[in-house]
Nucleic acid binder design. Structure first.
Lengths: 144, 144
DNA sequence: TTGAGATGGTTGCTTTGGTAACTGTCGATT
DNA sequence: AATCGACAGTTACCAAAGCAACCATCTCAA
């Protein structure tokens, strides 16, 4: 009879690791503890690309459009981003960060990078192989 | 100014990968498509250890006690497990799989292992380093 | 030009998950 | 024995997330 040990089972391990890392990552938001993961992703994506549409944000950050919609509204209420109706296509809106939004982003980024660097440093020589393996798995399970 | 590309950011990548792998894994449940992840974990844990308490299941499968409680009830309603009140300590209950529960488990396991093997095979020589890196990260972020 | 289907985005409904409060039982101390 | 704090498990309540229906606008073709 074939045996399966949950604690060695890859999907379980990925899931568990992902959630504990996300959990720990919350501490990185620093003074902005009420930020959610979707909000962080929208923030990071907009900072990365400047102005873009909600659709494009969703695509880049692998989020469902309702998740994006709600995160955008939350950031808007926080005055971290503004909407501008596109005049080529009035269905879509151009989203971009405000000065306070960018400020918060710049505050978070170094801590985020340090957090990541801490993990990679702990992996030592295993870091590079891990990243390669991740890339392979991402290729096997592409977005949509 | 330090730059962060979301698509290369480790916590994001882990999260994304974990959820797409879980998503794909659902297909493995085969005829039992309505099984949830928490239910699968309870099933797998009980099959692995035989009789045990809800508390112990939660500990082994990294699940909050409410999640365990609900998954146990669902499996009970499906007649895949039974509760027996422990008589040393009447607060806790001994949980164990029924014949149909074990049957379903045995049906799922080979498919689950094949799914995992497929991923590892695709990784080729990167599989072993990945598993080592996973173990290191798990050590860095222990349960509780 | 108008009508049909596609598309960007929002909202309502339902499911799922976490926190905290609760119930019942245990162990220990008096 | 009576009481108090700890503990197993459940439940009630609330926040987060997905699905589907919806609205407004666009595109394209007759």
């Amino acid at each position: 009879m074939s045996k399966l040990a949950l604690e060695h089972f890859l999907p379980y391990r990925l899931n568990r690791l992902s959630s504990v890392v996300s959990q720990q990552f919350r501490a990185v938001y620093g003074p902005h503890h009420d930020l959610t993961v979707p909000e962080w992703r929208v923030l990071a994506t907009l900072a990365q690309f400047g102005t873009m549409t909600a659709k494009a944000i969703g695509k880049h950050s692998s989020m469902h459009k309702t998740k994006v919609s709600r995160a955008v509204r939350a950031l808007e209420e926080r005055r971290w981003l503004v909407r501008r109706e596109s005049d080529q296509d009035r269905r879509e809106e151009s989203l971009s960060l405000t000065a306070p939004g960018l400020h918060a982003y710049r505050e978070i980024v170094p801590r985020a990078l340090a957090f990541e660097a801490g993990i990679l440093a702990a992996l030592g020589p295993h870091a590079e192989p891990l990243l390669e393996a991740l890339a392979l798995m991402e290729a096997r399970f592409p977005v949509d």
